[in-house]
C-alpha cells in the first residue's frame, strides 16, 4: 500500500516552491521510497532506546573567551544583498 503524502504541505514546510507537476512527480517517488523505509516499523524495537548520535558524549564545553571571528566584510561580500553591515532581504509580512 503506497503511503499517502500531503506533498504540497511538506513542500511548504521545506520552503520549496514547486509546480503542481513537480509535486506529483515527487509524491510518486516518495511513496516508493517510504514504502521501503516503512520496514523500520516492522522491526521489533521493544525496549530499545533511540540513538541520535554515535558518540556517547553529552555536552562539549569550551571556555567563554572572546576570540576573532570571520571578517564581516568578507562574509557579507558573499551575500546576494547587504547594506550597512547587515544582510538585506525583502520585507517579511506577518499578515497581508
Amino acid at each position: 500500500m503506497p503511503i499517502d503524502i500531503d506533498i504540497a504541505h511538506v513542500a511548504r514546510l521545506a520552503r520549496l516552491g514547486l509546480s503542481d507537476e513537480e509535486l506529483s512527480g515527487y509524491q510518486a517517488q516518495l511513496g516508493v521510497i517510504l514504502d521501503h523505509a516503512a520496514r523500520v516499523q516492522e522491526f521489533d524495537t521493544e525496549g530499545v532506546e533511540p540513538t541520535a548520535h554515535p558518540l556517547s558524549m553529552v555536552n562539549a564545553f569550551r571556555p567563554d573567551e572572546v576570540r576573532p571571528s570571520l571578517d564581516r566584510r568578507e562574509v557579507l561580500e558573499q551575500s546576494p544583498a547587504h547594506e550597512d553591515g547587515y544582510f538585506r532581504v525583502p520585507p517579511h509580512l506577518e499578515t497581508q
Binding site: 503524502i5 506533498i7 504541505h9 511538506v10 513542500a11 514546510l13 521545506a14 520549496l16 514547486l18 515527487y26 517517488q29 516518495l30 521510497i33 517510504l34 523505509a37 516503512a38 523500520v40 516499523q41 522491526f43 524495537t45 530499545v48 532506546e49 533511540p50 540513538t51 541520535a52
Partner: peptide
C-alpha cells in the same frame, strides 16, 4: 529536493515517531 521532502515528511508532526523515531531505534 527529493531528500529534503523525504526528511521533512519523516520529521513532521504525526509521522515523527513512526519514521524518524523508529529509525533511531533501529540505529541502536
Amino acid at each position: 529536493i527529493r531528500r529534503i521532502l523525504l526528511g521533512t515528511y519523516a520529521l513532521s508532526a504525526g509521522y515523527y515517531d513512526a519514521f524518524y523515531g523508529q529509525a533511531q531505534k533501529v540505529r541502536t
